[in-house]
Structure formats: C-alpha cells, structure tokens
Design a protein around this nucleic acid. Structure first.
Lengths: 158, 158
DNA sequence: TTATGGCATGGGAAGGCATGGGATAACATG
DNA sequence: CATGTTATCCCATGCCTTCCCATGCCATAA
C-alpha cells in the first residue's frame, strides 16, 4: 500500500507541469489509474493528494452516510466537485490546474510533503513555516508517538 | 466503476447543445447506452445525471419496496416521470431539454459538477455559490477528511 | 576520479476536444 | 398532400493539452 514519506521540492515549468517525486510515484505504482487525485485542503493553503482507489473507497463509503447526514453529504459534494484527476505524463509529471495552484499560492516551485497515506503539495516557503508551527505545537502539547507492536490491538498486523 | 470528479464549464449553443466533458464521457464509456440519464434535482436548481446502468439499479431497488405501495408509487413517478434519456451526438454533446434547462436556469453556460458516482449540471454562478456554502458549512462544523478504505481501521494494514 | 543510470527539466509537434455552421431527415401543421 | 419547423448528422476550425524526444544534473558504483 502507498506510504508517502519525506519532502521534495520540484520546479513548475511554464506549462504548469511538475515532476512528482519518483519515490511517491513508486508508492502509487500498483494502481488502476496512473496518476493522482488532488483536492484543495479545507483549512490550509495546500493541496491534498490521494491515490485513485482511496477516492473510489470514499465514494462507495458515502452511500451509507448520505442517508443519515445532510452535512456529510455537503462535504462530499464539495470534495468531489473540487477534486482533480491528474494523470502522469510519460515522464511522471502532472499539470497543476490553475484553481489548485492558486489555492496553494504555488508559482515556480512546489513542495511535495509526505503525510503517510497521502501527501500534500505546498508553496515551499509556506510548507516550511507550517512545518515549524506544527512542530512547535506538538512539542508544547507533549505529544508522543505511539508505535503498535505486532500482536497489539488484535487483528492489526505490522 | 464510474467516478465523476471536478467541475467543467461548457457553452450551450443556440441549438441547446452542450459538450459533456471528455473525462465524464470516459467514465461512461463501458455502458450499454451511449449517453446519460438526467432528472431535475428535488431540492436544488440543478440537474442530476446518471449512467444508464445506475438508473436500472435504482429501478430494481425500487422494486424491492413493496410493489404498488404508496412510497414506491410516489418515488417512482417523481424520479422516472421527469427523467430524460440524453444520447451523445458524434462529438459527445447532449441537447438539454427545455424543462431541465429551465429548472436549473441554464442559458448560455452549463457547469458539470462531479459528485462521485453521479454528476450535476448547474448554471455556473449558482454552482459557485452553492459550492461555497457547502464548503463554509463543512468548515464551520470542523469536518475533516477521513480517508479510509473499507475494512482499514487505524493501524491495521490493507 | 570516471563511468553509468535514474530522474528532473525543457521544448516542439501532433492529436484531442470544445465549438460552430450547414445539410439532411423526421415530424408536425395547415 | 404540401410546406414549414424541429431535431440529428456530418464536416470544418482553432485552441489547448499531452505525447515524444533531447538534455543535463546528481548519486551511486566501479
């Protein structure tokens, strides 16, 4: 399964193309769709990127929710309406649509930031300050990383 | 299966024709009917569009309700009576029937809005304000995007 | 240090796609 | 039955995207 780690900064050319880091592409290799799905982040000036299968899972999971929660449905609408399906070209690049680039204030450079199961795309400087702030907040709250060991939490493996 | 993402705005010519976005047509490719099924949305000034197979599925779902029951009858007439079967022409366009265009107040431009398993057709400005409202509501309620695939609970893998 | 391959980057060219108009066929109307 | 009207088909056009090939950098290995 996809696991996105570390941060990479790549150039955006005048056609709006950016190389997706090879490491991220490798994590997406065994997908039915050769590319990513990107949506503007709600509360951040960033883009969130997922693999296609996750998006399908989301659409299927909605059937049940729609029946119960009006609000959840509205969130879903917003997500699907703003989502973009971005295929890789032969060199592993995507084109950043203007709406997405604008939302993240991306012009000449784009930072690809691993977030585990998904990744984010930022304007590099904004990514840096956001990372510092997150770090600071984590420190202040005395957060700890909890690792699962094999055998913990019956059923989960690894 | 079909997954409709993103938003596209296309022109309506004086004959009432509109191009359905190529991406949406691609999602509809492996269908028995080369076109879409469109119905006026209940609570919104918009058109809801499905692929033909989904419509069949819907009808089967209705059959499961008691035959000739009150609900079955009212639902069926609400959905199927106002439905239009809109075939693609050679260039992938549809003609918007006056009743549908009128209900969505569409004149010169039509916005195709992906909703996951189906999509909606709006007057672009109305689509924009509706989208903003949904987004704002989601943000106010502190909603977050929850990404999990079916059967994937925190920690467990695949 | 030098060679090699992977990967990011750039630009040119072909093809896809939205759009428009005219011709032809189906339909309705008097 | 004749004629006007509406809807479908077909072809033309131009922009924009994506495909393809070329280049150069960097890291790793010899």
């Amino acid at each position: 399964m996809a696991l996105f780690l570390s941060t990479f900064v790549n150039k955006v050319d005048k056609k709006g193309r950016v190389s997706v880091p090879a490491q991220f592409r490798a994590a997406l290799a065994d997908q039915s769709f050769n590319g990513i799905v990107a949506i503007p982040a709600f509360r951040l000036n960033a883009i969130q990127a997922f693999d296609y299968e996750s998006m399908q899972g989301l659409s299927e999971g909605l059937d049940a929710l729609e029946l119960f929660s009006e609000e959840q449905a509205s969130l879903a609408s917003a997500i699907f309406a703003d989502a973009h399906q971005l295929p890789f070209d032969g060199e592993g690049r995507i084109v950043l649509p203007k709406e997405l680039a604008g939302h993240a204030r991306i012009t000449a450079l784009a930072a690809f930031v691993g977030q585990g199961r998904y990744f984010e795309i930022w304007e590099p400087e904004a990514a840096r300050t956001h990372r510092e702030r997150s770090r600071e907040q984590a420190r202040r709250q005395g957060m700890t990383l909890r690792l699962h060991r094999p055998g913990d939490e019956g059923g989960g493996r690894r």
